[in-house]
Design a binder for these strands. Structure first.
Lengths: 210, 210
DNA sequence: AAATTTTTTAATCATTTGTTTAATTTTTTT
DNA sequence: AAAAAAATTAAACAAATGATTAAAAAATTT
């Protein structure tokens, strides 16, 4: 076990690569910058990881894996209701993103740059398609009068409301004067609000179907 | 007046630059690629626009200006109610984005890369702060029991639900099998749904305040 | 038609950037 | 301690890239 001051060279490079790639994106990230941040000689990057591309692949895969681990654990839990799962999901992701606010733009950029990446190397389809969750949603939807095709809309709404503020952060900052500290408060408020809005949208189907 | 086949060299460069910058982003866009798409000699790009940076600045400013023209026109219209404005806004932007789906990621990337750009060169603050709109929202919020601080949340929700699907398009495509044609249908459905969800969220404040 | 200006082109420059090489230092094994 | 292996470094390479230059071609003005 190593202390945080005595990371191995490999670990220093990975930590620096994670920081730089997530902040700048693949194209704008430069190997010399990563080497500087890691405090190592440039050649060591290729010595340990062969190429920028290969190093990047490791970083984005680890980042995506962490996010999907959370997702998978929550939707596959047989103990929680659908609204519980939404609340857990929103809370988990907002807690993560508050301390790593650059992750959404990073992921979205790289998935757009290479869409096959997601489905090929990670086997997301298998991981997302949980029998339990599909079944649970069907029951929930039926009980609330929600048409099957609306699953994707409601899912997109929830993810949108959770993730989009991090993409729009500079706009909120410059146009609405929401500085870093205010932004954290703003996001913390949404941990409560978003699950409520989810409920409100769901309830609306019972009252008057769209 | 020139026909579309006989654009001036300047116009050909701008059209190509718009296409390439929006598709690739500033860093990944290469001047030689822009020149190729425009069908002109590379040196002409610098002859007419001095530098890649200056050309880019023109493109992003024009793109932002178009989007804000729409926004300004809608919120400053004294004839329409708040729900009307939401509906008009959602419809206008979804219609635009269906034919130019790469714009959201382009804007978000470049605003994140240089946040000052938005507030400095465009004077967005002045344009957004409409006395009429602020007044109208105050009345609307009071009538529906919406706390003042929730304005920003509800605005962010509406924009999130409208814009985010275009950022997540490859995920929807690869993970949920929503191909190009399906995506257009999906977005068209949301032209109706999002204003309804806005109403639903607003209504929820009357019934039981958060 | 001649002169002048504008536009276009091919070639080149200077810098950046990902990667490699060969030598040196450090660590591990014998 | 000697030998072998692993890690590190400085230097350099090759390709890509934004920009410039000087000459040629085209258009405009005189």
């Amino acid at each position: 076990m190593q202390s945080s001051e005595t990371l191995s060279t490999q670990e220093k490079i990975k930590a620096a690569a994670r920081e730089v790639f997530i902040k700048k994106g693949y194209v704008a990230a430069k190997t010399r910058h990563i080497a500087d941040v890691a405090g190592i000689n440039l050649a060591l990057l290729n010595y340990y990881f062969r190429s920028k591309e290969k190093l990047f692949h490791i970083i984005i895969m680890e980042t995506l894996a962490e996010l999907f681990d959370t997702f998978e654990a929550i939707i596959k839990n047989p103990e929680t209701s659908i609204p519980d799962k939404v609340r857990l999901m929103v809370t988990a992701y907002l807690d993560t993103l508050v301390v790593q606010p650059d992750i959404p733009l990073f992921i979205i950029n790289e998935v757009n740059r290479n869409p096959k990446l997601v489905i090929q190397d990670l086997k997301i389809n298998e991981r997302i398609q949980s029998e339990h969750f599909i079944q649970q949603w069907s029951v929930f939807a039926a009980k609330n009068g929600i048409p099957t095709q609306h699953f994707i809309h409601i899912l997109v709404n929830t993810v949108s409301m959770t993730v989009f503020p991090f993409l729009a952060k500079p706009v909120l900052s410059e146009v609405f004067g929401i500085k870093d500290r205010d932004f954290v408060d703003f996001v913390i408020q949404r941990k409560q609000f978003i699950p409520t809005w989810f409920d409100v949208i769901v309830q609306s189907y019972k009252q008057k179907p769209l």
